[in-house]
Design a protein around this nucleic acid. Structure first.
Lengths: 213, 213
DNA sequence: GCGCGCCTCGAACGAATGTTCGCCGCAAGC
DNA sequence: GCTTGCGGCGAACATTCGTTCGAGGCGCGC
């Protein structure tokens, strides 16, 4: 349990939060002073120290505006931006994640909490077209998160590139003897059987997200 | 289309982004200088001006560290924090959204892009227990977003409070003559029939999210 | 009353930070 | 060869910002 805050401390903390929300940088002490109608910077400093003692914020000395809000919200769930590289299961090849190229603003991103992609690196996202994975709770229009992978174990949901068809699709993967079965999670659809040489795994399914319509 | 960036400008812009990601405040000009291995602050300033001209960032003069990244990522999808108020369909009553009480760190939040809850106000979230809505692609452990509502039209997915049982559950709602049918989206489960007076609608389903395991 | 802790005040100081200015190198165009 | 424009350099300079310090108010226990 965290210690109680005095009225002024609560006010300052609240101001901090809304300021951070609006602008994209923290307020200076004098910003806080004005914003909270306090008559001296030292009062702000004093209460900021209190807030730091009590574990509500972290201050970076020798850095102006070096205030971070600790609190549940920011620690428990950091935000990561995942590039949405295209659409899957509609027949087009997907471009590979172009490492770090930026300034290319044609690519969209979605922001999600870190726990959607916990621990993984280079996660990317694709928009799903079609209902072939409906029984795995992946619907048309959903966004799926994938991590780059070259291999899969049986039952994994993977994005695979079918060389002969020149297309990418999201399916469950089963290696069965000399062939590979790509199993849709939709009882009205038939699996695809093909040779292992014909499939190239692009990524492994992590999680999905359904934007509200 | 945005103007091209020189190598140095791209480097600075990239540095800006990663810095913002790590810390919660923007870098100073001297931070950028060091981080990019530039030998003079004026070079940084020069290129920052270029970046601003070209529409990549916005600078707040008379404010140190007053740099905001414009760009697709931040504009297209703002981030909102949704309080997770509890669990649904496990029998407990849910607490109502306690407006703005803060400093109460027992409540968890999830951060999602604005488009998960587009336009709605006072959205809250609940963790789903059970698979009664599996055919609507809502699984055990999912988080559902709801907006406060007192009424529903037939077929809506709503969180309802059953007065006689003293519990809250997530179901599809059908008003049928003198009774209400609460229909699970799971063919192995039976609907609940009850009197309209016995149900109190708590919220209307907006969207769901499945945290990665 | 007196001391003590908690908080506030106002002013100053010094560090951190943003901005300006003169100078230089280089490549393109004349 | 000369000019012009783009980038870069380093050193001031000006401002913003964080911190400190002495002083004082207020409530509480003695």
């Amino acid at each position: 349990m965290r210690e109680e805050l005095s009225g002024k401390q609560q006010q300052i903390f609240e101001f901090l939060r809304t300021f951070l929300q609006d602008k994209d940088y923290p307020p200076s002490i004098r910003d806080i002073q004005e914003g909270c109608g306090i008559s001296s910077t030292s009062v702000v400093d004093y209460n900021l120290r209190k807030l730091e003692e009590k574990g509500y914020i972290r201050r970076d000395r020798e850095v102006s505006r070096g205030i971070e809000i600790l609190g549940a919200r920011r620690n428990r769930s950091r935000i990561v931006e995942i590039p949405v590289l295209g659409t899957i299961a509609a027949g087009q090849p997907i471009p590979v994640p172009t490492s770090d190229r930026f300034g290319n603003d044609s690519d969209e991103t979605v922001a999600v909490t870190e726990d959607m992609v916990r621990g993984r690196a280079n996660v990317f996202a694709l928009r799903v077209k079609g209902t072939s994975m409906i029984e795995d709770l992946i619907d048309d229009g959903d966004i799926v998160f994938l991590e780059p992978a070259q291999s899969a174990t049986n039952g994994d949901k993977v994005a695979v590139w079918l060389k002969d068809r020149g297309e990418v699709t999201l399916k469950r993967y089963y290696h069965e003897g000399t062939r590979v079965r790509l199993q849709p999670a939709n009882s009205t659809m038939e699996p695809i059987y093909t040779a292992p040489e014909n499939v190239e795994i692009q990524g492994r399914f992590i999680s999905s997200l359904r934007p509200s319509g």
